[in-house]
Amino acid sequence: MHELSIVYSIITSATEAAEREKATLVKVVTLRLGALAGVVEDSLQFCFEAATKDTMLEGSTLVVHRLPVIIHCATCKKDHEIQGIQSYRCPVCDAPSFDLRQGRELEIESLEIEVGDDNPDR
């Protein structure tokens, strides 16, 4: 929920990073989004388009990498990807596990930026 405030946060972080790199514009923002992050991708895309107007990110694409939940099974001693978010049992031995190794992420993985040549006489 609160995809709009999340988008504002993305815009702030991306703009800071882009300015540090002396970019003229941001073309792509790639996000890692865990299944348990509580964020709806469709809402995020809708808000992204609206909120990036008149910013360095205007017209950019938001790419979302959805991450499944990965639990560590103490019995098998291995990490396993699980389907959905309703059941946290090892797919191999059925032992329940709360040891989450992936699934709550909400982070900017990378940006694709355009860096202008602002000193052609260099």
Partner: peptide, 16 residues
């Protein structure tokens, strides 16, 4: 004009 990828790996909802 050159295009570059910048790796960030930075959590959102950062302020909270």
């Amino acid at each position: 004009m050159t295009t570059r990828i910048v790796e960030l790996r930075r959590g959102v909802l950062k302020k909270n």
